[in-house]
């Protein structure tokens, strides 16, 4: 069922963003692409800090241009670093981005500023309370439809503190096959695996070679080429319900192992979030992985990768990309 949601003003537009991103941005630039009468993709990047305005603007524009249908866009600056003239934070970056987006034939229609206390049309002194966003028609409608502006599978309060470590299994051809069969079976079942099964799966994830297979096997439309799999270049739309299931399972496996053995599952969750288009959630999980096992190489490499590659291939195309479901 497709229902039309009409955004009638800035408060509606600003309310819509957390529902798309799964959280309210902070210290970020958000570009919403648009065509006539419809919004397209939503792009969020970290606020530029020390980055040169032109380079930053060119990179952000090239990412926004992944939406090939865009003919215009909206820019929202989320920051509390408003500087001396609090009407124009990041003025040089905003100006450069406006120029670059216009050159790319998606001129900026409006720019808004959102701080932790108010929102405003960029460059104006008319500050509006954030309650206008919270109480907006769009927020009420989306919430009524079952959308949540925050999502989180990870809940540290549910993780046990006194759990025996799992023993890492010996790696043989048979154990690799057994692990892969076990993981695929768990993905195809419903419900939560019993503790014994969960601990067995968590043990397999501790072996980096087996872990790699289990991660790749999560995506049924992969083409078998490792670099393509890592970058999210698949043969078709992934089974996103299976990906959601994998993320939930990864958290279940974390519950049955102690600290120091959760990094592989956190890394899987981080990679899956990146495939879904959420670099923010991905980076958070990968940071947690590197905290769980200091120097956990896979998490550190993956974190560097997503900061450099920016957007997973699968997330670029609306036909293959994950779209947050409304319950």
């Amino acid at each position: 069922m497709m229902e039309k949601l009409t955004l009638t003003g800035p408060a509606d537009l600003l309310a819509y963003i957390p529902h798309l991103l799964g959280g309210t941005p902070t210290e970020s630039f958000v570009v919403l692409t648009a065509t006539s009468g419809a919004l397209g993709a939503t792009l969020r990047v970290d606020a530029p800090m020390d980055a040169a305005p032109l380079g930053f603007a060119q990179t952000v524009t090239s990412l926004a241009a992944e939406d090939e249908n865009a003919t215009a866009c909206y820019l929202v600056v989320y920051t509390d670093e408003t500087g001396e003239d609090d009407r124009f934070p990041y003025a040089a970056h905003v100006a450069a981005l406006g120029n670059e987006l216009a050159t790319a034939r998606m001129p900026v229609r409006k720019v808004y500023l959102v701080t932790s206390t108010h929102w405003a049309a960029y460059g104006t002194t008319e500050w509006n309370p954030l309650d206008q966003v919270k109480d907006s028609n769009a927020n009420a409608t989306l919430t009524f439809m079952g959308s949540a502006s925050t999502v989180d599978v990870y809940n540290p309060a549910l993780l046990g503190k006194w759990v025996e470590p799992v023993q890492v299994p010996a790696r043989t051809e048979e154990s690799v096959e057994q692990a892969r069969r076990g993981w695929v079976a768990a993905l195809e079942e419903t419900g939560t695996p019993d503790t014994e099964t969960a601990r067995k799966l968590a043990a397999w994830f501790q072996d980096e070679y087996i872990r790699d297979f289990l991660m790749a096997d999560t995506i049924t439309t992969n083409n078998g080429v490792i670099i393509d799999i890592m970058l999210g270049k698949f043969d078709g739309r992934p089974d996103w319900k299976r990906v959601d299931r994998a993320e939930g399972l990864a958290f279940e496996l974390m519950k049955v192992v102690p600290e120091g053995q959760r990094a592989p599952m956190l890394t899987l969750m981080g990679w899956l979030q990146w495939l879904k288009g959420s670099g923010t959630h991905s980076a958070r999980y990968l940071k947690l992985a590197a905290e769980d096992v200091p120097g956990y190489r896979f998490a550190e490499l993956l974190r560097e990768l997503i900061g450099n590659v920016y957007i997973a291939e699968v997330a670029k195309n609306p036909e293959t990309a994950y779209k947050r479901p409304i319950n």
Binding site: E3, L5, E66, Y310, I311, K323, P325, I326
Partner: peptide
């Protein structure tokens, strides 16, 4: 490096 980037499309079940 640009840091983590989010790129999403409109949610299921409704259009804008």
């Amino acid at each position: 490096s640009l840091g983590p980037v989010d790129f999403t499309h409109p949610q299921e079940h409704h259009d804008i």
